[in-house]
Design a protein around this nucleic acid. Structure first.
Length: 564
RNA sequence: UGCCGGGUCGUCUAAUGGCAGGACUACGCCCUUUGAAGGCGUCUGUAGAGGUUCAAAUCCUCUCCCGGCAGCCA
């Protein structure tokens, strides 16, 4: 209920257009959108916004949304990408039902549309070389000039185009072009290419075709064939809209969809183009498209992000026409908010140092109650073991603490979460390095959680884990992939130069609660006082547990310490 | 500088001639057996100059700034 009320409040300019169309009963009051990825890379979080928009609009206005692969360029497209794209959309929670299409499904119809254009005298086969075509096109400030082949007869064009299809010509020898206006101030209308010869194997049509339609010729007609009402795309296609409309106006198509453009999603400290992400993969800067540092959906999934958090984020980022860069802090807020409500808490020590209680019996152990999730009582409680020797985080102890350090230090007390109040009595340092090796404490036996004395005010509470009741794990800490907000802004340097060398830190000697050995891939937890973590889906095994840090908890102390 | 588009708190985003609001961030306080979460509060904005109007972020004029476009990519 609450959710739908919230949804009703979204009123971006696209929704306003749709509501207006509905009011006028345009398209018989129907809304039909489509998500049209090119299978030449993995989906990133920018695509998630487009998916959320297109599928969300369909849900909101009782319409439908198609999935259509825009596979008109066989040189870059692969089945691997098709599969990953479908997996990612499903993961986000959307369903195209039976409406799975490929632009390549329409190759025959698109060919016929091209023939129709030729017959109407509105398309011609050009035989200029690629270089000549470029030269003839002019520049943004100067008009182009017409190709000498522009006035070929309909019969000649038909014959040539048929022979192009019949594998008679070499790549680049001929090109089918729309006959529009070589002097148009809009470069897209200067006789744009419609069909080019490419003797390349296509991932779906195999070697059936050697001519392939250009994006501009395929997209609008595919939209029309599917009965799309609102064809939503990003800003860089705004200049193509007159061409989109020109084709639909000059062909016998079943309907004329409306193209609407919005600004693509950008986030600081990362990059968001498939080409650049591919570069990171190819140069082994990351381990693959699903490296947890990647802004791909598969990367976020492996990192421990949830579809809910991603959808909340793209909704909060909003839909508009002005170009913007969203602060990564908004994304982090969204995932913390979701995981806080959902995750089981667990005691872990990432960087252990041993604490020994001088006044605790050698062989004694105690089972103590720990809350699984303070945000959700239904998640219940579990037992944790206390004993003479425990580990705490190295950073929770300081021999010479600054002001406002509320943790353990010589002569001072601290509370052990769910256990006792303890006091540091002595410290053993490493003979060579001087580093703290072992901390000796006394525990106050009247302060066990729940006892009256446990109400005593102690400023700090730290987490811990029993030496004999913990298992080892590897924990991978991820940070932002780049050191600067806009890695692609610098004109002198390559964006790769700004990769954060500390974007991945691997901790190998971490201690976690023993039951975690039963965790399944992608299971999510809050490691108390540290952050949200999930079991890695590729490298973790029963012999070696591997956890990925999704996002750290907010850390007020880190800010205070930094100021001091 | 041809054409197209865009400029509202630090960052996003609303207000569609009628009180510039929300979220994130930052900061402060409260609460706290997670320095988390939560609660309360504070700061900060209509690119500039004119004009129309009782009233302008919104309409008009001029200026400035920022993107996109010269693939047989999408």
């Amino acid at each position: 209920m609450e959710n739908s009320e919230e949804k009703d409040q979204i009123n971006d300019f696209i929704r306003q257009i749709i509501k207006e169309d509905l009011k006028e009963n345009k398209n018989d009051g129907k809304v039909h959108t489509r998500f049209p990825p090119e299978p030449n890379g993995y989906l990133h979080i920018g695509h998630a916004q487009a998916i959320w928009l297109n599928f969300g609009l369909a849900e909101e206005f009782n319409g439908k949304c198609n999935l259509r692969f825009d596979d008109t360029n066989p040189e870059k497209e692969e089945v691997e990408y098709v599969d990953s794209i479908m997996e990612d959309i499903k993961w986000l929670g959307y369903d195209w039902d039976i409406r799975l299409y490929y632009a390549s499904d329409y190759f025959e119809q698109l060919y016929n549309f091209a023939v129709e254009l030729i017959k109407k005298g509105k398309a011609y086969v050009d035989s200029l070389t690629p270089d000549e075509i470029k030269e003839y096109r002019g520049t943004p400030t100067e008009p182009g000039k017409e190709s000498p082949y522009r006035d070929r007869t309909v019969e000649e064009n038909l014959d040539l185009f048929e022979r192009m299809r019949a594998w008679e010509f070499e790549e680049g020898k001929h090109l089918l072009r729309a006959k529009i206006d070589m002097a148009s101030p809009n470069m897209n209308l200067r006789d744009p290419a419609i069909y080019r010869i490419r003797k390349v194997h296509h991932h779906r049509t195999g070697d059936e075709w050697c001519i392939y339609p250009m994006y501009d010729f395929a997209h609008g007609q595919s939209d029309a064939l599917e009965g799309i009402t609102h064809s939503i795309c990003t800003l860089e296609f705004e200049n193509h809209r007159p061409l989109y409309d020109w084709f639909l106006d000059n062909l016998s198509v079943p309907c004329h969809p409306q193209q609407i453009e919005f600004a693509r999603l950008n986030i600081n400290y990362t990059v968001m183009s498939k080409r650049k992400l591919l570069t990171l993969v190819d140069n082994n800067v990351v381990s693959g498209w699903d490296d947890p540092r990647m802004p791909t959906l598969s990367g976020f999934r492996r990192r421990g992000y949830t579809p809910e958090a991603i959808k909340n984020f793209v909704e909060r980022a909003g839909i508009a026409k002005r170009e913007s860069i969203i602060d990564i802090a908004l994304l982090e807020h969204s995932i913390r908010e979701d995981l806080n409500k959902k995750t089981q808490r667990v005691m872990t020590v990432l960087n252990p140092i041993k604490v020994i209680f001088d006044n605790y019996p050698e062989d004694k152990t105690e089972e103590l109650d720990a809350v699984n999730n303070p945000e959700d009582e239904k998640m219940g409680k579990r037992k944790i073991t206390f004993s003479k020797e425990i580990y705490i985080e190295r950073e929770d102890f300081m021999e010479d603490p600054p002001k406002k350090f509320f943790r353990l230090s010589p002569g001072n007390e601290v509370r052990l979460r769910y256990a006792y109040i303890i006091k540091c009595v002595s410290v053993i340092n490493d003979e060579n390095t001087g580093e703290v090796k072992e901390i000796h404490c006394t525990y106050d036996h009247e302060t066990r959680s729940g006892m009256p004395q446990s109400k005593r005010k102690v400023k700090g509470t730290i987490h811990w884990i029993s030496v004999n009741n913990s298992i080892e794990a590897e924990i991978r800490l991820y940070d932002r992939l780049f050191t600067v907000e806009e890695p692609t802004k610098d004109k002198e340097k390559d964006f790769i130069d700004f990769v954060n060398p500390d974007s991945l830190k691997i901790l190998t000697n971490c201690k976690v609660e023993p039951w975690l050995k039963n965790a399944k891939a992608l299971d999510k937890f809050q490691f108390e006082r540290r952050g949200y973590f999930c079991l890695d889906s590729k490298d973790s095994s029963s012999e070696k547990l591997v956890f990925n840090r999704t996002v750290p908890l907010r850390d007020t102390w880190a800010k205070i310490a930094k100021k001091q």
